[in-house]
Amino acid sequence: MPMDASASETTVPVTVNGDARTVPDGYPLLDLLRDLDIDPDDDAATTGVAVALNESVVRRQDWVDVRLAEGDTVEVIQAQPGG
């Protein structure tokens, strides 16, 4: 079995913004952002957006390297009206 095919073979549970999800093991963070209607290649779409993986902030330039694993907790936030 080719190594790069294994990612799609298994699915794993993760938590995204408080909701349980199942994603392929090794699912790219960039794809998860696309699932959330955030185009990671569009600077305007990612302005004011930040990501934390397991309670650590992932810097914008490091998003491309993140692959999700079993039990990961992801937070994707943005600025909203507030007082």
Binding site: D37, V49, E75, I77, Q78, Q80, G82, G83
Partner: peptide, 20 residues
């Protein structure tokens, strides 16, 4: 001016232009 930090919600997205 103050803003809140909230989870991105696909069903209920923030006013896109708030920060802008």
């Amino acid at each position: 001016v103050t803003v809140a930090i909230r989870r991105v919600n696909v069903e209920n997205p923030a006013p896109e232009s708030h920060l802008d």
